[in-house]
């Protein structure tokens, strides 16, 4: 963006009493822009990883084998029934510390705060996806399952080629509901000093005392990201619509 536009924007802000002068400070501007990039990156990564966790958990939950389904159920309940922020603290201040001791010091620990945020948010939301996918898998007609089995499908092939493709379609609205939530939840990573947009903004407003101004920007950033995610959901729903099925 040319500097002249920036100055015009800042001047316009000033006329309504908003102080966006930090945009002219190269260091502050860079860290804030990096915050936006990190938020976007964290969102995409967490959506993908949480989906993998969800698929695995849904597979276990619907396996029909108690020794697989029961631990998966316990894990889902644990993840859903404790606050996300507490899980992040617990992972970073307890598990990470234990890991530090295990590998002989923080300098040997490959897991950063950022990595912990991805891990915790992915497992947390994976539990929600698993429930959405389980509902989808259970909505697959029994007769459909019987016909695939009669063709010689194994349990795994049935899941991969019939149950999951159908379950994914049935679960799509719920999944994207969760994905929107994932985007917003990345703000929790600020609690362990991951420099995403909330944390980056916080760093700016403690110095410049421009809380309202930064809040407006934060709302805009999350608003745009969640809008993109929900648009993608609608796009996928149309793309994956099964012609003539159910309507």
């Amino acid at each position: 963006m040319p500097e002249s536009w920036l100055r015009a924007f800042i001047a316009a802000g000033r006329t309504v009493g908003l102080n966006y002068a930090f945009l002219l400070d190269a260091r502050e501007r860079a860290s804030w822009l990096r915050g936006i990039a990190l938020t976007a990156e964290l969102s995409v990564l967490t959506i993908l990883c949480s989906l993998l966790v969800g698929i695995a958990l849904a597979g276990l939950l619907t396996s029909g084998r108690p020794w697989l389904a029961r631990p998966a159920r316990a894990f889902v309940e644990l993840m859903r029934n404790t606050p996300t922020l507490v899980q992040i603290y617990c992972a970073f201040f307890v598990l990470n510390m234990l890991l530090n001791q295990l590998v002989g010091g923080a300098q040997n620990n490959p897991l950063t705060a950022y990595a912990w945020a991805v891990i915790v948010l992915s497992t947390h939301y994976g539990a929600y996806h698993a429930e959405a996918l389980r509902a989808g898998i259970e909505a697959v007609p029994r007769a459909m399952r019987e016909s695939a089995i009669s063709l010689g499908f194994s349990r795994r092939e049935l899941l991969a080629h019939v149950e999951l493709p159908l379950a994914f379609r049935f679960a799509l609205p719920s999944l994207f509901n969760n994905f929107v939530d994932v985007v917003k939840s990345t703000t929790l990573a600020s609690a362990i000093a991951v420099g995403e947009v909330t944390y980056a903004s916080l760093m700016i407003w403690v110095e410049r005392d421009n809380v309202l101004e930064m809040m407006i920007l934060i709302f805009l950033v999350y608003g745009v990201l969640t809008l993109l995610v929900s648009r993608l959901g609608i796009l996928l729903e149309n793309r994956l619509r099964m012609p003539g099925y159910g309507h």
Partner: peptide, 23 residues
């Protein structure tokens, strides 16, 4: 399961409700 799969590969089954894969 493997034994049953080997059997089912040899036997066609056509259902009342067709049960084609809708996707």
């Amino acid at each position: 399961e493997a034994e049953r799969i080997a059997l089912r590969k040899r036997i066609g089954f056509v259902f009342q409700q067709y049960n084609l894969f809708p996707h």
